[in-house]
Amino acid sequence: MTVPILSIHGLWAGYDNVPVVTDLDLELPAGGFIAIVGPNGAGKSTTMRAIMGLAQVMKGTIDVDGGSILGMRTSERVRNGVALCPEGRNVFPTLSVEENLRTGAMAGSRWRQRNEDLERVYGLLPRLGERQTQQAGTLSGGEQQQLALGRALMSAPRLLLVDEASLGLAPVIVDLVFDLLRDINEAGTTIIAVEQNIGIADVAKEIAVIEHGMIASLDSVDGSGEGLRRSARDAYFGTGGSI
């Protein structure tokens, strides 16, 4: 029995002593690809941030590869192979595209290999390669999203956390980004993607629905991608729940 790459038990997390995530459990095998969907305020982003050390953890455990990462600084977690592509992109607007990417390699142990990593990322995201010296603040939303993703990939993470990548992007770009996530996962990176857009069901392997701070249901995609769509439609047409 292999150790799951990520193991969360009884997690209570939030900000300023106010919990948003309540008693959350989650396990993810290496190579997995899980999408976490749910309404606003349910705790999706907070879970991601707690894993990265950017939210307050009040109770519970978070283990990566069997070892607890609670109390570790974010920089250590990055060195341990976890990277976040944050909600709202959070790129460095006055730095160039290439400089942004290089910051992704700084905290990890791969600074020396940064040029190889750059080539790798440019290969995956050619649009960025065309704009290496452009100031990140002048990129379009979709390009900034790709930049944030590329930056996260620069530390060659084993576990990639993606927070609302589709936010504010046109449908055709969203498809591009989701396909990229699938490619990255097939190349060996475990992915957790928090999403509002149900289209993530097309590329993920498992879907977890989060409500009121805890996981309400967990399904693998082959089984009930349909079920997910149905319950989403129910929520949408007002027979219960929210988008």
Partner: peptide, 22 residues
């Protein structure tokens, strides 16, 4: 490298946190 880190931290503190800079 340290100069880049400083400029990144000045540009977007939250972003610097996320990529693991201290």
């Amino acid at each position: 490298r340290i100069g880049l880190a400083l400029r990144a931290g000045a540009d977007n503190r939250e972003g610097a946190n996320i990529v693991g800079l201290d």
